[in-house]
């Protein structure tokens, strides 16, 4: 409040009023910042900060999508990993059976019995190869919507999927292959020639059930099965490293989002301590102004003159 010397009465009241009003407005602004917890009530309060906050909020929204993508990739890869473990168990059992069948002490009828179990395991392998992922698509069929492997009349499995598995974006330009295609771990090289695990199991079952030459077929299948098991464990390593990669990107995303939150708080949130102190200060000045206004307004020469 400035001096009232040489001013008119109405000017004094007008000026006091505008001073008190502006103090009140300041106090109310501080109060609304305190109660909303946000420094910016509208963009024009600080256009640059508001624009930055909008961009940060956008990144936050897109980041949540990346998070669900990472979760989806993790669950698909975990499913693939579980299926591979079962593959390995089945192949190990096939190895046991092949070792038994390779023994010359068994009769053809006994080998035929083993052959029946091998055929059953072959069915299991086909079933595993046609597993479904978390969204109901073929787990090992790449981007194919239907089954990864189809069986012809003779029981031969043929790959029907696409050449590569789909990739999922994890944000910041990072992506991960969400699974494996069947041929990536079911086809391998054995003894310098390409082999297919499903075909090896099928051939072994056929040879054992036919009765003749079963021991020789089981012997030759043993090395192929060993290579097949190697291929599966290699695939498991690949899946494991992809899961690790996802963990890494998740960690990175979490730390980035912490930084973002810190920036959002810094730009957009109210500093409580500062705000309360400023509010207290404004209220004190307002009270003093009101008190001095009422004193000054009472000062009239008319009340002194009699």
């Amino acid at each position: 409040m400035s001096t009232i010397f040489g001013t008119s009465t109405s000017a004094f009241y007008e000026r006091s009023l505008s001073d008190l009003k502006s103090l009140r407005k300041q106090a109310e602004e501080l109060q609304s910042e305190l109660s909303s917890g946000e420094r910016l009530q509208r963009s024009s309060d600080d256009p640059v900060a508001a624009s930055r906050l909008r961009r940060l909020a956008r990144i936050d929204v897109l980041d949540q999508i990346d998070e669900t993508a990472a979760n989806r990739a993790t669950s698909d890869l975990t499913l693939a990993d579980n299926a591979l473990t079962q593959f390995a168990t089945t192949v190990t059992r096939l190895q046991e059976l092949a070792t038994q069948a390779a023994s010359g002490t068994l009769s053809d009828a006994q080998r035929a019995g083993i052959g029946a179990e091998v055929r059953q395991l072959h069915q299991n392998l086909v079933g595993l190869a046609n597993s479904r992922d978390s969204s109901g698509h073929a787990l090992f069929g790449g981007e194919n919507a239907a089954d990864a492997y189809t069986l012809d009349a003779a029981g031969n499995a043929t790959y029907a999927g696409t050449a590569t598995a789909g990739t999922l974006a994890l944000g910041d330009g990072q992506s991960v292959a969400r699974g494996l295609t069947g041929p990536e771990f079911l086809q391998f090289t054995s003894g310098g020639a390409p082999a297919d695990l499903l075909a090896v199991a099928k051939t072994l079952a056929d040879a054992l059930e036919s009765g003749a030459g079963g021991a020789a077929a089981a012997n030759s299948a043993l090395s192929a099965l060993g290579d097949g098991l190697d291929a599966i464990t290699t695939a498991q390593t690949v899946v494991g490293s992809r899961l690790n990669w996802i963990d890494l990107t998740v960690e990175r995303r979490v730390s980035l989002s912490e930084l973002r939150t810190a920036e959002q708080t810094e730009i957009g949130a109210t500093d409580l301590t500062e705000n309360i102190a400023r509010l207290q200060n404004t209220m004190l000045v307002l009270e003093a102004s009101q008190a001095s206004f009422s004193r000054l307004a009472n000062l009239s020469l008319f009340s002194v003159l009699n």
Partner: peptide
Amino acid sequence: AGTAKVALSAQSGVDLDQEAVNLV
């Protein structure tokens, strides 16, 4: 504008203290 307005009313407005003196 506020300053201009106060400057004008300081000169052309009524100051009750001064009017009290004039009255006497």
